[in-house]
């Protein structure tokens, strides 16, 4: 198929437009995962360790939020950031920052829910030992997060996979502006609808390679870490 050959050419020759799109995609998704981790890991750990009325309900809602439809998140963030919205004065709509915000909202519940499960399981195992060693609340959280770090990497990966693959949220709040807010997924959607299949296929290939590479990297790190720490 001639389409495939030219897609491969675009990738192999390092077409600058394509590289810019790849770069922005990575910046947006990785930033969102970092922000979501900063929110989701402490939140998930707190939810695992603190007992309060309504905790079960919060856990159910959090688990449900893992499956938030991206377009709905996009719409909510769009409304919040639009000129009339509560955060309209920030002037972020149709910028990469808006896309990062939307993906953070999408990914934070995933990281928080997986962290909650991981930390709660580990706490059941460690509770008597840490209590017997007179470890205070701060020390407990630090110990549990540290000892769960390889499982938490998996949670981050799940978050990254979700962010890198989604198009619904960022196309709404970013607007898919050429050279500014165009990412791999939004470009694929656009180019496919325009009929420019080589670029769409090339981007699709790059996207898949990146997702596989990131997963392989994290899997290797996890294996190495488990060999070291058990």
């Amino acid at each position: 198929m001639p389409g495939d050959v030219s897609a491969l050419q675009l990738v192999l020759t390092g077409d600058p437009a394509l590289l810019a799109i790849v770069r922005l995609s990575l910046i947006v998704s990785l930033s969102a995962v970092v922000l979501a981790a900063l929110i989701g890991i402490p939140f998930g750990a707190a939810l695992a360790l603190i007992q309060f009325p309504g905790r079960q309900a919060v856990i159910v809602v959090l688990n449900a939020l893992m499956g938030l439809p991206p377009v709905v998140v996009g719409l909510a963030v769009f409304l919040a950031l639009s000129r009339a919205g509560p955060l309209g004065s920030w002037g972020l709509l149709f910028t990469p920052k808006a896309m990062i915000i939307a993906q953070t909202v999408l990914v934070a519940p995933i990281i928080a829910a997986l962290t909650r499960q991981t930390i709660e399981d580990l706490w059941l195992e460690y509770r008597d030992e840490l209590t017997a060693m007179n470890v205070g609340p701060v020390g407990r959280v630090a110990t549990l997060i540290w000892d769960a770090r390889f499982s938490l990497v998996t949670a981050l990966l799940a978050g990254f996979g979700r962010a890198a693959a989604e198009v619904g949220a960022i196309i709404i709040v970013g607007g898919n502006i050429d050279g500014f807010t165009r990412t791999m997924t939004t470009a694929i959607a656009l180019e496919t609808s325009k009929g420019d299949l080589p670029l769409a296929v090339g981007l699709g290939m790059v996207l898949i390679v990146i997702v596989i590479a990131v997963n392989a990297l994290a899997w290797t790190a996890r294996r190495a870490g488990e060999r070291m720490a058990g």
Partner: peptide, 27 residues
């Protein structure tokens, strides 16, 4: 009274996910 002067070896001790020496260092 907090367990600063008491220690226990549980029937099924939990091992921290660290080396043997790091388990002792933790204590």
């Amino acid at each position: 009274v907090p367990p600063t002067r008491r220690a226990i070896v549980l029937q099924r001790p939990a091992m921290l996910r660290r080396s043997a020496s790091a388990n002792i260092r933790y204590a």
